[in-house]
């Protein structure tokens, strides 16, 4: 499957989550999406990432929309609390659906293939590089952080120290990472130049992900779904 195809499923999903106004229907959709995430590779990481965003969001929405602060501090009238909380729940479910959908799409597009697809696309190479750079950078930054941590541990920085000490640790670790990343920018530009990046308008891409009949069918299905949901909305 072409890495871009997965992302084509997101617009109809967005529309669908906006269209559904019943919490139970949204919850069902969310469960389906989470099961899809769970079925794919690296599901532990992906689900944790989803939870790390969604749980604090739930707490925030509950505090703000439930008007607990208002009622406690100012004694505000909170008779409409259930309605407000229901609206917040709908919002939370929508965001959750979209994030889960994005995780599904990302699973269909591993970074290596997505980068390749970007470079093989009709986008100018510089734009492709710009779009791909978050994918490329995260791998490198993680690696660098591991190296910096190791070097600093050898000098007595304790990554597992209690919190007050850890603040100092973080500074000791963040410093080299920032310095490195900055010094890297020039180095990276030189490396790209040295490999004739953007020297000719049309570059070749080895093993460019092919856009198959299946991708076309899925894209058509996504488009059809989009039209269908939009149509049903307008019809009402």
């Amino acid at each position: 499957m072409h890495p871009f195809t997965g992302f084509a499923l997101l617009p109809p999903l967005l529309l669908l989550t906006l269209r559904l106004t019943d919490a139970r229907a949204l919850a069902a959709l969310l469960v389906v999406l989470l099961v899809l995430v769970w079925m794919g590779g690296e599901h532990r990481v992906r689900l944790r990432r989803w939870a790390l965003l969604m749980l604090p969001l739930a707490a925030g929405l509950w505090l703000v929309h439930g008007r607990y602060l208002d009622s406690l501090v100012f004694g505000a009238d909170v008779a409409d609390r259930p309605q407000r909380l229901y609206a917040a729940a709908l919002l939370w479910l929508r965001v959750g659906c979209l994030l889960a959908g994005a995780q599904v799409a990302l699973r269909l597009a591993p970074p290596a293939r997505l980068t390749r697809a970007l470079f093989a696309s009709r986008l100018p190479p510089s734009v492709a590089y710009l779009l791909a750079s978050p994918l490329l950078l995260s791998v490198q930054l993680r690696r660098r952080l591991a190296e910096v941590t190791e070097a600093q541990r050898a000098r007595g920085v304790d990554p597992a120290a209690p919190w007050p000490q850890r603040a100092r640790t973080l500074i000791a670790l963040a410093g080299p990472l920032v310095v490195w990343t900055l010094s890297d920018v020039g180095e990276r530009a030189n490396a790209l130049d040295a490999r004739a990046f953007r020297s000719v308008p049309c570059r070749t891409t080895l093993d460019a992900p092919a856009f198959t009949a299946r991708d076309r069918a899925l894209l058509a299905a996504a488009l059809a779904a989009f039209v269908l949901v939009a149509g049903s909305w307008l019809w009402r």
């Binding site: 970074p111 290596a112 980068t115 470079f119 190479p125 791998v139 040295a194 490999r195 004739a196 990046f197 953007r198 020297s199 000719v200 049309c202 570059r203 070749t204 891409t205 080895l206």
Partner: peptide, 15 residues
Amino acid sequence: FTVYDEVAFGPENLG
């Protein structure tokens, strides 16, 4: 993401 891709990157840029 692989050494092979890294080596191929330059020639790819030459089109």
